[in-house]
Amino acid sequence: MGLDKHGIAKRIAKEVKNGMYVNLGIGIPTLVANYLPEGIEVVLQSENGLLGMGPFPTEEQVDADMINAGKQTITTLPGSAIFNSAESFAMIRGEHVDLTILGAMEVSEKGDIANWKIPGKMVKGMGGAMDLVASAKNIIVAMQHTARDGSSKLLKECTLPITGVDCVKKIVTDLAVLEVVDGGFKLLERAPGVSVEDIKAATAGNLIIEGDVPEIQV
């Protein structure tokens, strides 16, 4: 039941339009690059200092001086540009990046996002996530609808330390596509084999359902 992580990535890829500069976070967001629609020009920004991120290198092309924000070896493309970290975040903070896709541990119905810290357990740091969510014109979150114990990750209020306030626009989970609107999560689409009731049961925040909810096409 529901989408696997590739299904989530495929659905998000449909949100990417011709001519966009896009920042992809680590995890499911990285997979989105594999499913971008044919025939559109998209430039991927890597916050460690690269515009125009190409595919992984072949064994012969591997260069320790060419990595992405996930520390993976990568390549450039014709038209790529390399720059320092301050300039990279000028692109992000200055709203020159059109779309940010990132993972989350929790999202609130007001569009707050928590994805950087579990007090006493996980202390890895926020990396570029706080800068990205504070300034992105459009943020799509890729996440599982519920935690492993079955508890909802779409909440009234985040319980974990937040990364940013009132910033998430759209969420694609294994169960549904939702939009953050005044008053809660508006259900836009449901995953194949998933009912509106299933989604209601898995959503702790206010779920807004208007009319028929179509199935996700991927």
Partner: peptide, 12 residues
Amino acid sequence: EKRIEQRTVRTA
């Protein structure tokens, strides 16, 4: 040494 943290490659 220039150690690589995540050596990711594709087949040519």
